[in-house]
Amino acid sequence: MPFIVEQSGAITIISVTGHLIVANRQELKHVVLERLRTGDREFLIDFAETGYIDSSGLGVLVSLSKKVREQGGELRLAALNEDLRTLFQLTKLDTLFTIVDSREEGLRDG
C-alpha cells in the first residue's frame, strides 16, 4: 500500500510513499472519498517520502480537492521537495492548493 493513513485530531494525514501515478491514483481516491463519506473534512497529503507524481496523480489531487471543498473541507499538501514543487509551479496548481513546508506546519496551522 503506497498510502499510509493517520489521524491527528480533526486532520486526516495521508503519506504517499513511493510514487503517485496512473497505476495507483484510484487507491488514493478511494481512501480520501471513503474518509470524506465517514465525516472527515480536513486532509493533509504528506509527500515527504514521494518519488514522483505524474499528470494522473496531479489530476486526482485536483479532483479530490474539489470534492473535499464541496463538503466544506480542505485538502492541503505538505513536504513537497523542490523537484515536486516544480511540477505544481509548471502546471500552476500551486495556485490551487495550500502547500505547507512540512507535516508539522500543516498540523500546527490546520
Partner: peptide, 18 residues
C-alpha cells in the same frame, strides 16, 4: 493549455504539457 483558469480545475490534460 492546462494552465488557463478554465482548465486548471480539470483532472486531465497535463501529460503532454508536462
Amino acid at each position: 493549455d492546462p494552465t488557463t483558469p478554465e482548465s486548471l480545475l480539470k483532472p486531465d490534460g497535463r501529460g503532454i504539457f508536462l
